[in-house]
Design a binder for these strands. Structure first.
Length: 574
DNA sequence: GCCGTTTTCGGCCCGACTGTTTTCAGTCG
């Protein structure tokens, strides 16, 4: 799969075009094409072989030709030509906040800077301020950014950033100076990882808010403080941006600061077509300049002739056309989820008893819970063998009487061996109510092998769900190289479900894969992968992905009420 | 360079902040 490499090529071309001060729209075209290739779940090389490159949005004949050359030769004459006189590594400079094309070019022309180290050195020797147009302040800022870049933590997983943002918002709401406060930006869109934490505040008492933030126990340092924005670092070095707007602009501002950028651009274009101007302050009639809306988000969308679009869909992936046609999906919510299909107890590597997990599931409003401890194959987890399985079934029988009508399903998370075989006997498997299967090893084997391995797990009669099919761990391990299309085909043929795992480090399937699964008619299932009572809350993250994947309740197995789920499981046994 | 229920040519979002300026360019989101 060379999609990532192709996307980078196009981004490099876009960057090089910036240095040449090329037409901004040509630059945007390359960036847009790169973005769309990242979203694409098919192999771009396959598209190219079939001569279907220009069917990808944002790719026309010119960009298609450049992609073709790159796929064939691994190089791009066009990029080389653009970089003529500049080393390609020089494009690195553009990644530093505060350096755009103009300054990058200035730095190169004056000092032949090509590496970040060179730049740090120049800043230390106070050489940068010699350049006309760049003074001591700029030099200091660059020094700071370079230092931060060195120790920059990776993007924060949503599971960390979201609760933190809610906590800060709730602290702000406690102040009489604050009307409303909500996390915005990518947190509100439930993107799987977050750069900076954005929080929107409605207030006209800026000074009080500034003091409030300075006094928060979790504030380490205030980085910047303009008239509408305060930026600070938390004790853990996470960056938080607080935006302050007047109450009457709340809706337009929330819309604007939620993004995504691409969604907002498209919305503004639509506004222009309809004779409006849209900004974070509201929606205005162009002719009269009169403000016609902006107190609420819904108002903004409705004035543009759109059904209000849930934040999770605002990625410019077809949501605007759907909203215009009134055909947005009725997205799944946490309340639609009737049970959890992936939890561990102290029978394997969980740290709570089955009874405790059940009590928590009941408190979450569920009707059922599958206890899916690891099978023996995963050595580290003290997994389920025959003797343990019998003991666990006995306990579950007893607890089912105690907690009726709530239903505990005896389950297991099976290891899928490298051969595709499962690691418990057929006879034993037949005794479980619910079986999911996982790959936990050989994560770097080639795409053919791992796809085949997962596929053969799905074809095993007793398996209901394939867990975390992508195999990634955020910030730790990239997803498997595997053929999503093939896997989806197998899932469809067998009628088995693919899991969306809500564990904050997994978030797997990811949103665009899950969306593709839905489009192919593949069933999904949601699991928290809880290893403790508190872990059940991770269902929120699974639902977040499901919503970003446009899933409706009918697409997800565990939205079925208990009776219907039992029927489904019964049919699967045949 | 892409794209099309007003267009196959002429569009392609909008505003804030910062620093270094004597009125604005560069960068960002």
């Amino acid at each position: 799969m060379q999609n990532e490499a192709v996307a980078r090529l196009l981004e490099n071309i876009a960057a090089a075009l910036q240095l040449k001060a090329e037409n901004i729209f040509r630059i945007r075209a390359y960036e847009e094409a790169a973005r769309n290739i990242r979203f694409l779940k098919e192999d771009i090389a396959e598209n190219w072989r079939q001569g279907r490159l220009t069917e990808v949005p944002g790719i026309g004949t010119s960009i298609a030709q450049k992609i073709g050359e790159f796929l064939q030769t691994g190089k791009s004459a066009y990029l080389q030509e653009l970089c003529d006189g500049y080393p390609v590594a020089f494009l690195e400079l553009l990644k530093i906040p505060g350096i755009g094309p103009r300054r990058a070019k200035l730095l190169y022309d004056h000092f032949h800077v090509t590496k970040l180290d060179d730049l740090a050195d120049l800043a230390r020797r106070q050489q940068i301020r010699q350049i006309r147009g760049m003074g001591p302040k700029t030099e200091e800022q660059l020094s700071r950014e370079l230092a931060r870049l060195g120790q920059r933590t990776q993007r924060l997983p949503l599971g960390i950033a979201w609760p933190l943002a809610e906590r800060i918002a709730s602290l702000l709401r406690n102040s009489p100076a604050v009307g409303q406060a909500e996390p915005a930006g990518s947190i509100r869109r439930r993107l799987e990882t977050i750069g900076d934490i954005d929080i929107l505040v409605a207030s006209d008492r800026f000074a009080e808010i500034r003091k409030l933030i300075a006094d928060l126990p979790l504030t380490k340092e205030i980085l910047a403080s303009g008239s509408t924005k305060i930026t600070f670092l938390t004790a853990e070095d996470f960056q938080v941006d607080i935006r302050i707007v007047p109450q009457e602009s709340w809706g337009a501002a929330l819309q604007y600061f939620t993004g995504s950028k691409e969604h907002n651009v498209a919305l503004r274009e639509l506004a222009v077509q309809k004779g409006y101007k849209l900004s974070e302050y509201g929606i205005f009639e162009v002719e009269s300049g009169r403000k016609v809306g902006g107190r609420t988000e819904a108002e903004v969308y409705e004035l543009l002739g759109l059904t209000p679009i849930p934040p999770e869909l605002r990625e410019k992936r077809g949501e605007i056309a759907a909203a215009a046609a009134g055909s947005l999906p009725r997205l799944i919510t946490l309340a639609d989820v009737k049970g959890d299909f992936h939890v561990h107890s102290n029978y394997s590597d969980g740290n709570s008893s089955i009874a405790a997990m059940v009590e928590s599931a009941i408190a979450h409003g569920y009707q059922y819970l599958a206890i899916t401890d690891h099978s023996i194959g995963l050595g580290i987890a003290r997994g389920i063998n025959q003797e343990k399985a019998w003991r666990q079934w006995e306990e579950i029988r007893r607890l089912n009487k105690q907690y009726a009508p709530f239903r505990i399903l005896s389950g297991v998370e099976l290891e899928v061996r490298a051969t595709g075989e499962l690691d418990l006997s057929e006879e034993l498997l037949a005794g479980f109510d619910f079986i999911c299967a996982s790959v936990h090893s050989g994560t770097r084997s080639d795409a053919e092998r791992i796809t085949k391995r997962m596929g053969s797990a799905l074809r095993q009669h007793w398996v209901h769900v394939l867990n975390h099919p992508g195999g990634r761990l955020l910030n730790q391990r990239p997803p498997y190289e595997y053929h999503l299309d093939q896997l989806l085909q197998t899932a469809k043929e067998t009628g088995k479900a693919l899991e969306i795992n809500g564990s904050y480090l997994r978030m797997d399937l990811d949103d665009s894969s899950a969306r593709k699964a839905k489009e192919q008619g593949v069933l999904l299932s949601l699991g928290s992968d809880a290893h403790s009572v508190a872990g059940l809350d991770a269902m929120q993250l699974a639902v977040a992905i499901a919503r970003r994947a446009w899933l409706e309740p009918a697409d997800v197995l565990n939205t079925l009420p208990l009776a219907e789920l039992l029927q489904w499981l019964e049919r699967e046994k045949l």
